[in-house]
Design a protein around this nucleic acid. Structure first.
Lengths: 205, 205
DNA sequence: GGAAAGTGCTTACGGAACGCCAACAGGATA
DNA sequence: TATCCTGTTGGCGTTCCGTAAGCACTTTCC
């Protein structure tokens, strides 16, 4: 039976390997556990090795290896893409750690009921930093508030991605974010909201 | 298990072959890794050959050859956040279905080994549609190619997100994407690449 | 109260990882 | 043939990292 700190150690190692693809240094484990002694940390590692939960390539840097404990498990479909967060990057400073946020879960960020993804075609939202080829995550809903970026159908046709502005006189304005396009003001009845933008994704080749 | 520099070496060779269509000289690898010793470089190459990742035509110039070996890893598909894709949205049309793509997997898009996430602070990449508050996914690596967006340390300090331009005279230029900032040209040795941007995420409140 | 277990710290040692340099060998080239 | 280019090998040093041992403090339980 593992002690509390032994369990912490194992958990940390598992997360580290999952996030970084290689095993941590003893010093990194110590840091992750919030203790400053590599010696103590090493004792925990040794306990895990003795318990048959870890394997060690003696003498090698980053030589730890997880033992697959029970791979007969039905592999539950975890919906989470977890990426480690290193910190904030800014001009003029080193990368700054973000307190209380060591990883981000794309599932948390973008998943949800009634959501779907659209691929953006065209540059009408370029001033809002949405480029052609980007993906936008849409929360499917029929209403939207002033200032939200919406997918809108005009007269049941003409689907566009625009910023929605609601005017006092009952009309709405669909405002592109590109000076080469003109805003369009229409009676609210003619505009059918399909959903609002809740996220945006881009990959680089 | 590869050490960090062995991994760097392999990555450099892969990129070099992809870019130039032939394998690099030992001296070129050394240069790419930022070390001046061909002997040290050769040791890394030897390690990769021993690991079965490279093949060598002994005695021949540019005799390195990559071994294709991605059949030994069953590639655990644990990580998947799947969102349905409705289609393309464009000005002037209904939402257009995208053939052969009914859903997208955020795991496929953004996961990978040696990746992490940074929160962007500041508007220096605004013309590349990366805003303050966005998240960028960084592929951790020590080398980058001309035109890639990189996380770079200047003189071991001053971490920035910039477009990397490699000049013919051995210097590199860190180019911000904001006309209010000035590009900086430096000797390549002073610039330490931390990784390249492979993705970008944004959520809307 | 005292033993045992759990947790933490410091110090020390040896090897791994990494880097440099010099020297040599063999193919390529003039 | 002589020279240059490139790959290869070995030695040396520095720094980083894993391992181990000893000491101290707290909690738990008999």
């Amino acid at each position: 039976m593992l002690t509390e700190r032994q369990q912490d150690t194992l958990t940390f190692i598992q997360h580290y390997i999952r996030d970084h693809g290689r095993s941590p240094l003893v010093a990194e484990i110590a840091d992750g556990l919030g203790i400053s002694s590599q010696g103590t940390t090493h004792r925990y590692i040794q306990a895990l090795v003795n318990a048959g939960l870890l394997e060690r390539n003696v003498g090698r840097t980053r030589g730890l290896q997880l033992i697959n404990q029970h791979d007969d498990q039905p592999e539950q479909p975890i919906l989470s893409v977890i990426l480690p967060v290193m910190g904030k990057i800014a001009a003029g400073r080193l990368i700054e750690a973000i307190p209380d946020e060591s990883e981000i879960d794309l599932g948390d960020m973008f998943s949800g009921s009634n959501r779907f993804v659209l691929k953006v075609n065209g540059d009408s939202m370029i001033d809002k930093a949405i480029l052609s080829g980007d993906w936008v995550v849409i929360q499917s809903q029929q209403t939207a508030r002033h200032g939200e970026i919406v997918v809108a159908l005009v007269d049941g046709y003409d689907a566009t991605l625009k910023t929605l502005l609601t005017n006092d006189d009952g009309t709405v304005t669909l405002m592109p974010a590109n000076e080469n396009y003109e805003p369009v003001t229409l009676a609210a009845e003619r505009v059918s909201i399909q959903g609002i933008v809740v996220g945006q994704l881009r990959t680089y080749p």
